[in-house]
Amino acid sequence: MKFTLMMLIGMLTQAQPMMKERPVSTGEVLQFKLTYGWFTVGRGSFSISDEVIYRDGRECLKIDIEGRTAGLAGVFSKVDDKWGAVIDKESFKPYYSFRDLSEGDYDLEEEVFFDYDSMRIQFEQASAKEESPRPTKYFDIEKDGVFDMMGGLMHARSIDYRKLEKGDRVSIDAFFDKKFYHFQMVYHGIEMIKSKVGKIYCHKVVPIMEKNSVFVGEDAVTFWVSADANRLPLKVSANMKFGTAHCELTAYKNVKSGIDFE
């Protein structure tokens, strides 16, 4: 689940054209299935609260993600992860995010606070197996436009891909797990894919991957985002050392345009 969320962050740009009308809506709920080879190994959900939250006088979105093991995978290692954030409704810059992870014998609680007056990030972690919390760490925000995972996903859905050409590169600066990242991806145009929610025209984006021991091949990871008004994250495919993993959208409701699919 973690690798999928990190890859979704990569679908971003700071300098690319944005849609005038944001495709996301409060109350939206997306359901996903994670497969590895022929097996379903996990399920996840993404939801935007109806609750109105304000930070620095600006209206914000409250987002929650849950991921858990499914099928035979739960027999070997149970995963029950929760992620969340509060982000600006228009710019998608983060104000707060958290992770609450339970993965077999591993557990972690994390909170991140983004302070734009001091231009600093306050990072706190703790584990139930440790007698005391880990020390608070601070990181300087050196420039505007640094996203967290949730804000990055929202930003990705709001890019106006229609104004990009095949081969164009997009990039982003992001903060995740005590590190700043700079991602680059290549736009591959529009193609129709057969998804769990129907045959849909999509924008195809492929990240530029550094050599590593997890992903295989030059185009190891591919993303498809619906080319309609909702810009739904339909599918992620990753060629890995021991097989191919897929994360696919299986249901949605309360989207900004169109009817529910459940």
Rank of each mutant, 00 (worst) to 15 (best):
T136V: 11
K82H: 15
L72S: 04
E66M: 09
E90V: 11
P135H: 07
F147T: 08
G104C: 05
K93L: 15
E124C: 02
A128M: 10
V75G: 06
H155C: 07
F98K: 04
R68K: 14
F139M: 11
A128I: 03
G145H: 06
E66L: 11
M119H: 11
M119I: 00
H155Q: 14
K78H: 06
S91H: 05
E66P: 01
M150H: 10
S118V: 09
I141V: 13
S158G: 14
A73F: 02
D88N: 12
Q122K: 08
D117V: 12
F92D: 11
V112E: 08
K129E: 15
I141W: 07
F76K: 07
H155F: 05
E124N: 07
D117M: 08
G145Y: 07
R68V: 06
S102F: 10
P133H: 13
Q122C: 00
K93I: 15
D100W: 04
V86N: 04
K89M: 09
Y106A: 06
D148P: 04
A156D: 02
E109Q: 13
K137I: 08
E111Y: 04
S132C: 08
G67L: 09
F114S: 01
L108F: 02
Q125K: 13
L101Q: 04
Y116F: 10
K82E: 14
K129W: 12
A70I: 02
E130L: 12
S77H: 11
V79H: 06
I159G: 01
Y106M: 04
Q125E: 14
M119R: 12
K137Y: 09
T136M: 05
Y106K: 01
P133C: 09
D88W: 01
E142G: 04
S102V: 06
F147G: 10
D107R: 00
Y95C: 08
V86R: 00
P133S: 08
E109N: 14
D160R: 10
F114D: 05
K82V: 13
D144A: 15
R134G: 12
F123H: 11
V86T: 10
F98E: 04
M149V: 15
T69M: 03
E131D: 13
S132H: 12
R134F: 13
G74I: 03
G74R: 03
G152Q: 11
Y95I: 05
